[in-house]
Design a protein around this nucleic acid. Structure first.
Length: 850
RNA sequence: GCGGGCGUGAUGGAAUGGUAGACAUAUCGGACUUAAAAUCCGUGGGCCGUAUAGGCCGUGUGGGUUCGAGUCCCACCGCCCGCACCA
């Protein structure tokens, strides 16, 4: 009998599938379509465990759906534009395109041996003009449809390298290469009007039943709908009133000062004449643009000297401060501060010695709230002292609503709905991205390129020896004809955010070689994606942008109406994590070390020169952190099926998993055992089984079919695999040579086939079954075989298990109760006491309450 | 700082509010072998106990709801993800 040789088997069956062309997807009227998609990879050069996990899950679903009679589309491509290619160009002197295409080739050759049931004929790479020309065409359509516009926005500016930095390139407020303190600087940039879709993107979340609740909640909070009060504070000096927006108008009587953003028009105006204000604005502009950096920055304030009047009491004057924690992007860029009921306001008032008005809330029972920044809960009742409309006790929300009504009735304020969601800035001052197809013309302004001039192809002859966007320096490429007046114009040198590329690739896959962005018939047939699978780290941006883009494509006629939500079902897998080993260099910058450079002793890590490293115990595998584990070793050593089986069995798919090498060998041992077991069964001579034993084995088989089908169909892969282990154990112990055993063996091979497709093909053949296992219909569980005649019921006394009884499955509750109470162990525990109550949960449990 | 999530044996983990630890790994013991590997059988939360008898404790911590809580609620601790220019 031959041993399990993964290498031989896997190559052989991959060739067989290729030859049969069974994974090539075509429209069909006979079968229901099923579109399964995993988030496509960034071609970093090496596949990592996260990829293997992600694509194995998708492949299991794809193969399972094929087996259950679906016409499956399962494509693959490359999210190929991005920053890393430019870094490689700078570090290694390779052209970003060369680097990227080489990586794609390498990664494809690493993915192929895994035996995924992919339709490679639809492969796309977003950096290829055949892809991005369609993106440029859609950009023009969307620009003309009013979905795109230009405005100023802030970027990270490195004053030494004179270049824009990505957030990732800002480390502790400093440029990653120059080390210079980063400044926030305004540039004119292109934007998608995603905020116009706020309400729609929010309310449509309700229909996404097959999305994780946590993702919907995160998107809801991100869109951030709020109802609040907008009103203006009159200035005592007669200047233009300052309009503010607040979600807590009920705290207006605790107002201490009015704050404006450093980017507020008033702050800018003051800066023109007052050097201190200008200086203050400069100070505030230090550091990166992330919300995290802004929120964590030291709170800074500047008293403008301007005073405003409280809307409910003209004698009450409030000072106007410029404060760095107020965002110009949200509301009106101005607030009133209420230190008694907001911790940040309180901290600010204490720091700058501003008045803290005593609280005016009390708990429902009248207990006054001391001014330790008590945030009145929106859902709980608080006593609301009667500055406004005579309401006594109200929930926070009632108080808010009442205040808005009151302000509107008195005519000094207006209820306003606000969204936190900002428009999507798509401009990037970088080379390796899709060129934005517009021309700057002295006469005509900024005009879209003619569609027949597309694609606007990135020039090849660029250099990265100077920081900044090489397109800016490429005069030959920049100079072009204005599409409207035929005079000379200059091309836009900003390229598109790579999120644009990934916001519509799912649609392109439905007709990857079409001459237009999508093909109406193909899109109508294949959309929507039935199952989308990817990392939880994409819960907000990528998914929200894709949801927006599907709508924008629909408006511009590139997607059918039904595809308004592109992904019917979403599964967010957990990340594969690994410890990070870190030291610090002379410049104070972190240096990351590969796991194989670090020796671990007593929970501490050391480099071979003896230096101790800092250990971050568990972090997302990331190339820049040097903590990526390479799955190729496992594939080389044990084969793809072992790698696939292992990543599925080891942890629940939604949870993060800390990578350890141990366990892969165990998976290999099990597959070898299955190979041996099935081979033996195939060679066993027929023997008569006992009916009873046969029946028991077949019952186990049907239970396995039921449980594994359920697990595979609902991302319970690890539970399905546990069931397969148990079923294998039962099968191994059953009597040799019976018909039932042959049948059960075939079922086992089929049930494993989505996970271990190569091994299953091999064993399918060994068992003498017809055709390819990949083409075989999925077994169906016989419902009548799933029920047991007798069941074991635990008996509890006050919730603690004291005994168990075997009873017929259909025994009536009163009889179960009688039988339970008659048990010796129960009688002994009762010790003559009379039960207060006996709870019988049919088929589950008996609980005796004393 | 804000939003979201997670926390169960030595380890990965299982458990529609219903017997906590399925299944697997490490370990230990045994069989087979000249020996080893492979394989097979057993052991496999802690404590008491001669124990495959029985009992007590036990799902990050503290409280609550319930006949019954790993699961639901509140507070706290720790870790992870995201925060709009990493993808």
């Amino acid at each position: 009998m031959s041993r399990y040789s993964a290498v031989e088997i896997e190559r052989k069956w991959q060739d067989a599938w290729d030859k049969a062309g069974i994974f090539r997807a075509e429209r069909s009227k006979e079968k229901p379509k099923y579109y399964v998609l995993e988030m496509f990879p960034y071609p970093s050069g090496r596949i990592h465990m996260g990829h293997v996990r992600n694509y194995t899950m998708g492949d299991v679903i794809a193969r399972y759906k094929r087996a259950t009679g679906h016409n499956v589309l399962h494509p693959m491509g490359w999210d190929a534009f991005g920053l890393a290619a430019e870094n490689a160009a700078m570090d290694k002197g390779i052209h970003p395109g060369t680097w990227t295409y080489q990586n794609i080739e390498d990664m494809k050759s690493q993915l192929k041996p895994l035996g995924f049931s992919l339709d490679w004929s639809r492969e796309i790479a977003t950096c290829h003009p055949k892809y991005y020309q369609h993106q440029q065409a859609m950009f023009i359509d969307m620009l003309e449809a009013g979905l795109i516009y230009r405005k100023n926005a802030v970027v990270n500016w490195d004053p030494v390298d004179m270049t824009v930095l990505a957030n990732e390139q800002v480390i502790d407020g400093k440029g990653w290469r120059s080390g210079a303190e980063v400044e926030r600087r305004e540039l004119t940039q292109w934007f998608f009007k995603i905020s116009e879709f706020s309400e729609e993107l929010l309310s449509s979340l309700d229909g996404l039943d097959d999305w994780p609740a946590k993702v919907r909640l995160m998107q809801e909070n991100w869109i951030g709908k709020s109802r609040g009060l907008e009103f203006a504070f009159e200035r005592t000096d007669g200047g233009e009133a300052i309009s503010v927006y607040t979600t807590r108008p009920d705290t207006l009587m605790g107002a201490s000062f009015v704050g404006i953003s450093p980017d507020h028009p008033l702050a800018k105006e003051l800066a023109e004449n007052i050097p201190d204000v200008a200086q203050f604005r400069t100070d505030c502009a230090k550091g990166g643009t992330t919300e995290e950096a802004l929120e964590k920055a030291e709170k800074l304030g500047f008293d403008t000297g301007i005073k405003v009047k409280h809307p409910l009491n003209p004698d009450w004057e409030l000072p106007v401060w410029i404060a760095n924690f107020i965002l110009m992007d949200y509301g009106t860029g101005a607030i009133f501060a209420c230190p008694a009921h907001d911790q940040r306001d309180l901290d600010f008032c204490r720091k700058y010695d501003l008045p803290v008005i005593d609280t005016f809330f009390a708990l429902e029972d009248g207990t006054p709230v001391k001014n330790e920044a008590f945030v009145p809960p929106k859902t709980e009742k608080v006593k609301w002292i009667d500055h406004f409309a005579g309401i006594d006790v109200a929930t926070g929300q009632e108080a808010i609503d009442a205040t808005i009504d009151f302000a509107e009735a008195q005519g000094w304020g207006e209820g306003v709905t606000q969204f936190r969601l900002r428009d999507w800035g798509l401009s990037r001052q970088r080379y390796w991205g899709c060129p934005i197809p517009v021309v700057h013309c002295e006469t005509c302004g900024v005009v879209p390129e003619k569609k027949e001039n597309l694609p606007i192809i990135l020039p090849e002859d660029v250099s990265f020896d100077v920081p900044g966007n090489p397109l800016d320096r490429h005069d030959e490429w920049r100079k072009c004809m204005c599409p409207t007046c035929d005079e000379q114009g200059l091309r836009e040198t900003d390229t598109m955010d790579t999120f644009v590329d990934s916001s519509w690739y799912y649609a392109r896959f439905t007709a990857a070689r079409a001459d237009t962005p999508t093909d109406p018939e193909e899109a109508a047939y294949w959309m929507n994606v039935d199952q989308y699978i990817g990392g939880i780290e994409h819960a907000i941006l990528h998914l929200l942008y894709s949801r927006f883009f599907a709508r924008a494509m629909q408006i511009t006629g590139h997607l059918p109406e039904k595809a308004v939500e592109p992904f019917d079902a979403l599964f967010t897998q957990g990340m594969v994590t690994h410890a990070i080993y870190k030291t610090t260099n002379e410049a104070g910058r972190p240096v990351y070390h590969f796991p194989e450079e670090v020796e671990l002793r007593d929970d501490k890590g050391f480099l071979n020169n003896g230096t101790e490293v800092d250990i971050v115990p568990s972090a997302k595998m990331s190339k820049s952190k040097n903590n990526v584990v390479d799955p190729l070793n496992i594939i080389d050593q044990f084969g793809a099926d072992t790698a696939r089986w292992f990543v599925l069995s080891d942890s629940p798919p939604e949870r993060d998993v800390e990578w350890t090498a141990a366990g892969a060998e165990a998976a290999f041992k099990h597959l070898s055992r299955v190979h041996r077991l099935i081979s033996e069964i195939a060679s066993e001579v027929d023997a008569a089984g006992s009916d009873e034993a046969d029946q028991l084995l077949l019952k186990e088989m049907h239970k396995a079919i039921h449980d594994v089908s359920g697990g595979v169909g609902s991302f319970g892969f690890n539970a399905a695999i546990a069931k397969l282990y148990a079923f294998t154990n039962v099968l191994a112990k059953s009597k040799a040579g019976t018909k039932a055993k042959q049948q059960a063996a075939r079922a086992l091979v089929q049930l494993m086939s989505p996970m271990t497709p190569h091994l299953s093909e091999e064993l399918w053949q060994i068992l003498g079954a017809e055709g390819l296992a990949a083409n075989a219909a999925w077994p169906v569980a016989d419902e009548s075989m799933l029920v047991d005649d007798t069941i074991t019921l635990p008996i509890q006394i006050n919730g603690k298990r004291r005994a168990e009884i075997n009873v017929p499955a259909d025994m009536a509750s009163p009889e179960v109760e009688k039988l339970a109470l008659s048990q010796d162990a129960i009688q002994k525990s009762l010790d003559g006491a009379e039960p207060k109550k006996v709870i019988v949960v049919p088929g589950r449990i008996v609980n005796v309450v004393l």
